[in-house]
Nucleic acid binder design. Structure first.
Ligand SMILES: [Mn+2]
Ligand SMILES: [Mn+2]
Ligand SMILES: [Zn+2]
Ligand SMILES: [Zn+2]
Lengths: 148, 148
DNA sequence: CTCTTATTGAGAATGAATCTCATTTAACAG
DNA sequence: CTGTTAAATGAGATTCATTCTCAATAAGAG
């Protein structure tokens, strides 16, 4: 049994919830992914494996995985919420290109120090840190320059 | 004529768009506000002053003000997008309490230095920086402790 | 004024996310 | 096993913020 399964099962147990077939499968597929994903994309993947899991159950399972600390809401794009692993993945920032949609990720070790010291002075319990920068990536900047 | 009007009018001009009655009124009401606002809230305020501005026009004017650098999308809450001034307001982070909904804002001077140096190495043009921290505020933490 | 193009209001359409409810399943005690 | 109880589920309806359509109007240049 993999780490994330142990964590999820323990979480469910503690909440008096059941580690069902559907939840097992959803978790499994989520942890095979290594990109940002939205619910529709996830549902399609799951549906390829089993027709027995409904969209509603996928939607219902996501907040459970979030609460369990396994995934988090990431960049929202094309009007859909997107998610990504946090368990086993270093915290990072997102740099979104408004022009081509590219998403770059960078480490936020240094940032976290600032955030944590601020949290201390405010006595704020941090659950989730989200740094998103929007603008134009180097490629699109170059293209823009060339075409002048 | 106020700064933000000058900026908006110049922006529209440059885009070949017109500084109409409706846009004037929307801008005016937006800059009387000094809180985070969503479209519905803004529309209600506008509607009190004039019945002649439709919801559609409010929705259409917001991205124009964003593009003009006057406002930006802020924290999303209760499923609605929220906005806030950026013109004349220092950049700041948002600390959202998951329990009571409180939003605290803090300065991000130090953070911006990090972000800007990262942008330099990536050759990324920054349009918008969003730092949001979610968790539990000091008040809710105290309440939780007391009730044990 | 006349023309051209942008703008507008009203309401329809879209679509992600949530909800409802009848049915099924998990878990557990006997 | 069997019966009991509460949680979970699928299918589809519903919600509701946002976007779109389109006919009518306004702005602005000449
Ligand atoms: Mn990421
Ligand atoms: Mn703010
Ligand atoms: Zn790009
Ligand atoms: Zn709070």
């Amino acid at each position: 049994m993999q780490e994330h399964e142990i964590i999820f099962e323990a979480f469910l147990e503690k909440q008096g919830l059941k580690y069902t077939k559907a939840r097992k499968l959803i978790l499994e597929i989520v942890f095979k992914l290594h990109e940002h994903f939205d619910v529709e994309y996830l549902y399609d993947l799951i549906h390829q494996v089993s027709k027995d899991v409904s969209r509603a159950t996928v939607y219902r399972t996501i907040p459970l995985m979030v609460e369990a600390g396994l995934i988090q809401r990431s960049v929202r794009s094309e009007s859909r919420d997107k998610y990504e692993h946090i368990y086993g993945h270093p915290r990072h920032s997102h740099w979104v290109c408004k022009n081509c949609g590219l998403v770059i990720e960078t480490d936020i070790q240094d940032l976290m120090k600032l955030v944590q010291s601020e949290a201390k002075t405010q006595n704020f319990q941090i659950d989730e840190v989200n740094l998103t920068v929007r603008g134009i990536c180097w490629k699109c900047r170059n293209n823009a320059n060339e075409s002048q």
